[in-house]
Simulated scan of single mutants.
Amino acid sequence: MDFGHLVNSENFNIRNFHPDLWQMFDNRWDWERAYLHENYSQSLNESNKIQMPCPDVYWFPVFKERYAKEMIEMVENYGRWSDGSHMDTRLESGYENVPTVDIHMKQVNYNDEWHEILRAYIQPLQLRVYDGYFNDPPRALMSFTVRYRPDEQPALRPHHDTSTYTINVGLNRPGIDYQGGGCRFLRYNCSVVDTRVGWTLMHPGRLTHLHEGLRVTAGTRYIIVTFVDP
């Protein structure tokens, strides 16, 4: 702690855009200092109340703004966004029922790292709010970064997710980087529009939480979406 520490550079790949994003396995301490929200651990304290902006919808600080910024830059550097149509060759079925303009974690070789994030940081939060449900490790067949903008795909129709629960990570600032946007849960007539950079929204995927993506009227909105335990 006083004189510095050793790092493992064996798997440091400079071909990755923002290669530090991939270092959670080899250099976990440094990764957490760089990317994990400084208030993350407070959500694990049973004496702290978890924010619930809509019924059974919870909010947690998980990532720092640096993580959000670098994830946006990484996917935009990759640049191969889907066209938002139902036909999607990335999927085994070749068909997406509720398509978005997105890039899958698999496409940017970040799937293993993202699954470790689900196991190490998201699952402990899930255990706090959805008592009695435990699936270790959590599974995710669909994890992707979504882009909403007025001239491309501004909104998303009402739908259920193919998941036990879904996480939605805000990557940029409403009212500054974009106007409009957010998520509305139809059954409860409840919307979450003041999303926070690096915060994770968690909600059930099926039956009770029919939801829609509200229209972005200006700028570009970025989120990470993961369907956990389909």
Rank of each mutant, 00 (worst) to 15 (best):
L21I: 04
D161R: 01
D136G: 00
R33K: 13
F185D: 09
T145P: 00
L207P: 00
A68G: 11
P61N: 12
I122N: 00
N135M: 10
Y165H: 11
H203T: 10
R184H: 15
S85N: 09
G180W: 06
V225Y: 00
T162M: 06
F60Y: 08
W59A: 12
Q107E: 15
M202V: 15
G175D: 08
E38T: 05
G170N: 14
T217A: 07
L21T: 04
G84Q: 08
I224F: 06
N27G: 08
Y165E: 06
H37N: 14
L44H: 13
G205I: 11
Y222V: 01
N135T: 05
N109V: 13
P19W: 07
A140L: 03
R147A: 07
H203Q: 07
V108L: 02
L186E: 15
H5F: 11
Q42E: 15
R221L: 04
M71V: 15
D136I: 12
W199D: 15
I224Y: 04
P150E: 12
C54L: 10
T208F: 07
P99G: 07
Y222H: 07
D88Q: 07
I50T: 14
G213E: 08
Q107F: 03
F63G: 03
E212L: 05
V228M: 06
D194G: 04
V129Q: 10
L6W: 02
M105P: 03
Y40G: 08
G132N: 08
T162D: 13
G182C: 14
W199I: 01
M202I: 15
Y78D: 12
Y148P: 06
K106G: 04
R184S: 10
F17C: 03
F227P: 02
T100R: 14
A120I: 02
F144Q: 12
W29H: 07
D30R: 08
F25S: 11
Y121I: 11
R147Y: 02
S47Q: 14
E116T: 12
Y110W: 06
V169D: 02
N172K: 06
F63A: 05
N48L: 05
N27L: 04
R215W: 01
S9A: 11
Y222F: 12
A218W: 13
V75A: 06
W31H: 00
Y188G: 05
P19F: 06
Q42P: 00
I176S: 09
R157T: 14
Q179H: 11
M52Q: 15
K106D: 10
T220Q: 07
G94V: 10
R206I: 02
P230C: 03
D20C: 08
R196A: 07
S41Y: 08
